[in-house]
Design a protein around this nucleic acid. Sequence first.
DNA 1: GACTGTCTGTGCGTTAACACACATACCCCG
DNA 2: CGGGGTATGTGTGTTAACGCACAGACAGTC
Lengths: 236, 236
Amino acid sequence: MRIQKIGGEAVNRLLATLPKNEYKRLLPSLKPVNLTFGEVLYEAGDIIKHVYFPTDSIVSLLAATPETSGLEVGMVGNEGMAGLPVFMGANVSPTRALVQGAGSAMKMTSANARLEANRLGSLHRLLHRYSHSLLAQVSQSSACNRFHSVDARLARWLLMTADRLNADGFRLTQEFMSSMLGVRREGVNKAAGALQAENLIRYSRGVIAILDRRRLEAKACVCYPLIKADADEYLN
Amino acid sequence: MRIQKIGGEAVNRLLATLPKNEYKRLLPSLKPVNLTFGEVLYEAGDIIKHVYFPTDSIVSLLAATPETSGLEVGMVGNEGMAGLPVFMGANVSPTRALVQGAGSAMKMTSANARLEANRLGSLHRLLHRYSHSLLAQVSQSSACNRFHSVDARLARWLLMTADRLNADGFRLTQEFMSSMLGVRREGVNKAAGALQAENLIRYSRGVIAILDRRRLEAKACVCYPLIKADADEYLN
DNA sequence: GACTGTCTGTGCGTTAACACACATACCCCG
DNA sequence: CGGGGTATGTGTGTTAACGCACAGACAGTC
């Protein structure tokens, strides 16, 4: 269950950028769905049956590693689409796609997505740009995961989540965050405790609120603005 | 200067997969070039003027971080193309592209590449698949960089380099490898020393030879076969 | 209002990789 | 053949994060 939902129309910005006539053509094949927290849209290696355009939900892309439950390498919100491999002519997902923020999305069958992918229209062009943006995001996260401290990465991750949920509060346990960041729960606890001590966030039993966005941004590494710039810019 | 060049035709496998007529159409805009070690094809943020199809050279993609000289997030050899953002409708490269293995490549202007990208031909389809494969590679490396030991990552990296150079020997200092792997030189020294002690590799003053491929693969993490599978498979 | 499960806090020993500081070894070139 | 530069080897602390082992603390339920 999500808490607070402040401002912000619940639209998928990628779809919203399409010219009207093209959007109308797509509309019949788009079905609104509710994504529930923890739902797995695809396991790594699964055949992709549907693509998803989140409106106020978040889908995490997790790379498989034998030792752990996976590491988040990308986050898909209302700026993008889950199931990009379909667009790229692949059937299977290389990563696990996990609903990390409950909310709504528009769903389309892979067959229909493939049809659209084979027309050189606006959707085609936008998905190309989005692929680029996602690649940039994954690249930057990679360096971030290697070099930056748990504290900085937690701050970045909270901000990215808030951006995509369009809300300053959400439900997520430390346990969950630890698996996204690829660190131990104790590590998250320490980092989150520090942030709370400085009144940047408040949390309790899986309910997190961002209290001071600006100062939280200062705690995050440069990766946050870098990734944000890419994600925001491509829709123009 | 490269040493040893055993077997293997020097072709770009992506281009080689194109149907004849399409390849002929491209040929006039493809110019063979020699890429020299250390050459920077693009800095992060640069406008991309040319795309490159390596034949027996390697281009490393490095994500920028303020603290370090960057971290390798992807490797482009004869299975791919450097300058993918052009294909995706972006002008600038999010990563630095550095020639990590000297050798030859085919070069094409971005303008021509863009023209081709706007035709729904085989090249378009192949570059789509390649984008997918690269995204998978970057995702997996990300997790690898987070979780696996320097030893395992060094082994993986040497194998990936050898695959793309089509040779079991090449010139690379520990200093250089350390910056690719995002670890200190001393760390590389320790890991490389261990591998040499077991007679898996031999090296001296920037000259490295792989002596026992099979056992070296055993030292690498699962990431190596995972990435290799993606890179090899997409060309079918 | 006790019971149970989940979420959070904390302490303690261990470890991989870090930073810095040299020592050595090899190659080329004048 | 004897420097000088580059590449490699090694030693001593330091640190961030790990693994494990519990101890509280709160929320819902019977």
